[in-house]
Amino acid sequence: MALTETIAKEIQPTVKVADESFGINDTQLCTLSIEIDELRFRFCAVQDDNRQCRWLEDYASDTFLNKGELLEKLKQITVEHPFLGADSWKSISVAVNTNAFTLVPAPLFRKEYAAEYLHLVLGRTVQPEDRVMHHYLAQVDAYNVFTIPSEWSEWLMGQYPFQTIEFCHLTSPLITGALASHKEYNEPRILSACFEEEYVTLLFSEGGKLLFCNRFRYSNAQELTYLILFTLNQLNYQPENVKMYLYGEITPYADTYTELARFIPHLNFGQNPGALRYTADFEDIPGHRYFGLLNTCLMPRQ
């Protein structure tokens, strides 16, 4: 059986929140935001004039897909979807989640050295099949330098040839959301944690300023808790003096939550960004789950 046939049979969104009145003619009023990594593909449509999220879909794979397999899956989803492949979107933003990223202060950034910045972080040169990109993040006056598989970026630009796609690393919308949280939650110090399968992105901010951002791999709840406590210790803060907000793939019943609750007294689940409006159907999904994707809609256009 051909790869595309095998993948096609598996494609169904695991989560769908839809304004059923939405159609292809509405795309010209909306920003299409996409989040993509090796296990997940998510997108949402936000109407620009009133900032209402009118559509969200989440596709997840139970098994690891290589870059080629994931690309075939994305192509199939787009071909079969009633409006995802439309060429009339008002704007398009894509957040990629890869291990290779680094923040470089704007005064030190030089475009021609972008690959060298990643070399320092990775301890090796960037793979030939990966493309180096950068995105300016005004909130921290820094460039987020990252890689994306070349075949992903080439397919996306080929899929939407008449539109400029804004590419960024997922940490950029996470930073945007984390800094906005100070105003939304009225907290001076916030540790934001965005969970994936086997990974967590930690962001520590104080007074609306980012002090720490990194992505860690962990194998169990105890290792995760150690990473978080060690990070706080390196920042010279005690857990009781920090509010921690959880996002992404975590529930109150997870071992990771139970273990964290033993050591972090002020543990909270985050909410959807307050800068967006939501249909009634959004009440059926956890407010913390799509923090990265929804904040991608709020990224300033460059």
Rank of each mutant, 00 (worst) to 15 (best):
Gln271Arg: 12
Tyr226Gly: 01
Gly274Met: 09
Thr225Val: 11
Ser192Asn: 10
Pro82His: 06
Tyr199Leu: 15
Thr164Ile: 08
Leu3His: 07
Phe83Lys: 01
Thr14Glu: 12
Ile92Asn: 03
Gln159Glu: 10
Phe230Val: 02
Ala275Pro: 01
Val79Ile: 13
Thr279Phe: 06
Glu196Lys: 12
Asn99Tyr: 05
Ser61Phe: 10
Glu166Val: 06
Gly85His: 02
Ser91Asp: 14
Leu191Gly: 03
Ala106Trp: 00
Asp284Val: 07
Ile175Trp: 00
Asn214Leu: 07
Ser88Asp: 12
Ser153Val: 10
Gln52Cys: 08
Phe195Ser: 00
Asp255Cys: 03
Cys297Lys: 02
Ile175Gln: 00
Asp141Gly: 08
Tyr199Val: 05
Ile190Asp: 05
Gly207Leu: 08
Ser219His: 13
Leu71Trp: 02
Pro300Gly: 09
Leu246Cys: 06
Ser219Met: 08
Glu249Lys: 15
Ser192Pro: 01
Asp26Asn: 13
Arg54Ile: 10
Thr78Val: 13
Gln234Asp: 14
Arg42Phe: 04
Lys75Val: 08
Ala106Gly: 07
Ala275Leu: 14
Tyr245Asn: 04
Pro286Ala: 10
Glu129Phe: 08
Ala178Val: 06
Glu283Asp: 14
Trp55Gln: 04
Leu276Ile: 05
Leu210Trp: 00
Glu72Arg: 06
Val96Tyr: 00
Asp49Cys: 07
Ala254Leu: 01
Val200Ile: 13
Ser21Cys: 04
Thr78Ser: 13
Asp87Phe: 06
Glu80Lys: 14
Asn241Lys: 14
Ala45Cys: 15
Phe83Gly: 02
Thr176Leu: 11
Gln163Phe: 01
Asn25Leu: 14
Glu283Val: 03
Thr251Lys: 07
Phe195Ala: 03
Val46Phe: 02
Gly85Lys: 08
Met299Lys: 11
Leu108Lys: 05
